[in-house]
Design a protein around this nucleic acid. Structure first.
Length: 410
RNA sequence: CGGGCCGUAGUGUAGCGGUAGCACGAGUCCUUCGGGAGGAUUUAGCCCGAGUUCAAAUCUCGGCGGCCCGACCA
């Protein structure tokens, strides 16, 4: 892709008012644009990153045996009434011209259970796992921290359906493993934290927290074992001895919740009348679990954790392009050759062929965009019969032979 | 929803009762070309409403909007 033909405009100034790193970096680099508080546009290059997050999630969930579908954002009041969630404070409620009332979905248990009544009737139809990646709406009293807390955001919601609690229990922990793997691939170190189930369940649920001072949740965890609890339910405090292993000290840190998993039981299947017949012919409510990941929040979290003062440093899986090929004065013919060969090799390359941008501007943009690998072709490199290679994550600048590019960039 | 700070060209800012200025951007021309280049020239702005005043970007009140703290966060 040629930069002269692709919309990738950066801003020359840091956005005023924004304090959070993800908002500053993503806005300035032109990944996102703010439409109103907590509501963002994903600009072309930002959308590429978001799609990469989604594709990692899809890959893992598809391999896990879940099927993707897409549900409506506009959800008739009758469904919310079924479960008593019409009065949920964060629900955006609206009316059409005929007086019909709707809520904009913040999760989709009601929609899905009602649909599945047509398709599930026997234990033979279970288990079943369906997910979607969809825009969610929440009337947040206070949107904040760029992509970390918005009123409109992308959410991957997975729902599992089981014949019995035991099957759910097994699936739940398998899902937890897949989640840990997904976050790892996305460049996030997460901790599995016990949390409250809110309106959904009286049991503990589990959150995947990225520990960082900028997170809005407070986590108490053991330095020695896997014990970790959200402050909202925790009875331990920093400095105490771990109640689980009795050895480690409890530490306190903030976290960004990038995912959560819930055992819903029959909380939603019962009101919807989503039942199955077991082997004995007995009618029972389907047992459910739900599992969420916020791709847009992940984008914010990654920016928050992986950056320097010049811009974002994307993990390679999320880099909007594999290579940023920057052409400086005297390097045009060389850059074009390299561009062609990289394209031919199927490498996703962003070629800065702009004639009206100064070298400084191009190099600044390269840092802001944070593409994993930077190649520079200039009079200097042509003279040396080499090409310059730099990883965005490092500081070393290598002069390499052109045919060696593929050794580094694959 | 309570509290704080703040709304001035596309962006970032100065002006704090008396002619709205600067930088970047954008347009045109020339020069330049390895870390947001230089010169010439053009372009574009006081969030909205009411009040005080001879006079309001500036003071007062109300609204709207943004960020931050708190509450909230299925």
């Amino acid at each position: 892709m040629k930069q002269s033909q692709f919309f990738a405009k950066t801003l020359k100034e840091w956005p005023k008012d924004e304090e959070s790193a993800n908002a500053r970096l993503l806005l300035r680099a032109g990944f996102i644009a703010k439409s109103s508080s907590g509501v963002y546009t994903f600009l072309p290059i930002g959308l590429k990153v978001l799609e990469k997050i989604n594709s990692v999630i899809r890959e893992e969930l598809n391999a896990f045996g879940a099927s993707e579908l897409l549900m409506p954002a506009l959800v008739s009041k009758k469904y919310w009434d079924q479960t008593g969630r019409w009065q949920t404070p964060v629900l955006y409620r609206l009316q059409d011209s005929s007086g019909q009332e709707y809520g904009l979905g913040f999760t989709h248990e009601e929609v899905l259970t009602n649909i599945l009544k047509q398709f599930i009737s026997s234990w033979r139809d279970l288990p079943l796992a369906l997910y979607q990646i969809q825009t969610k709406f929440r009337d947040e009293p206070r949107a904040k921290s760029g992509l970390l807390r918005g009123k409109e955001f992308l959410m991957k919601d997975l729902y599992s359906f089981h014949a019995g609690e035991k099957d759910l229990e097994k699936y739940y922990w398998r899902a937890a493993k897949i989640y840990a793997k997904i976050f790892k691939r996305l460049g996030l170190k997460t901790k599995i934290v016990e949390a409250s189930g809110g309106d959904f369940t009286k049991d503990f649920t589990h959150e995947f927290q990225v520990l960082t001072p900028v997170g809005e949740d407070t986590i108490f965890y053991c330095q020695n074992c896997s014990f970790a609890q959200n402050k909202e339910i925790s009875r331990v405090g920093a400095g105490q001895t771990c109640p689980l292993c009795k050895k480690g000290e409890i530490l306190k840190e903030n976290g960004i919740e990038v995912g959560n998993i819930f055992k819903l039981g029959s909380r939603f299947s019962k009101p919807a009348g989503l039942n199955y017949k077991d082997k004995d012919g007995e009618v029972k409510p389907v047992i459910m679990g739900s599992y969420g990941i916020g791709p847009t929040r992940i984008m914010g979290a990654v920016a928050e954790l992986h950056h320097d003062d010049k811009g974002v440093i994307w993990p390679q899986v999320l880099s909007p392009f594999k290579v940023h090929l920057v052409e400086l004065a005297g390097g045009r013919a060389e850059a074009q050759k390299i561009y062609k060969s990289l394209c031919a090799a199927g490498i996703d390359v962003f070629y800065d062929d702009r004639k009206d941008a100064s070298p400084g501007e191009k190099l600044f943009d390269a840092d802001l965009l944070g593409i994993s690998w930077r190649l520079v072709a200039s009079a200097k490199t042509v003279l040396a019969k080499k090409i310059e290679l730099k990883a965005r994550s490092g500081s070393e600048i290598k002069l390499i032979a052109r045919n060696q590019i593929f050794k580094y960039v694959k």
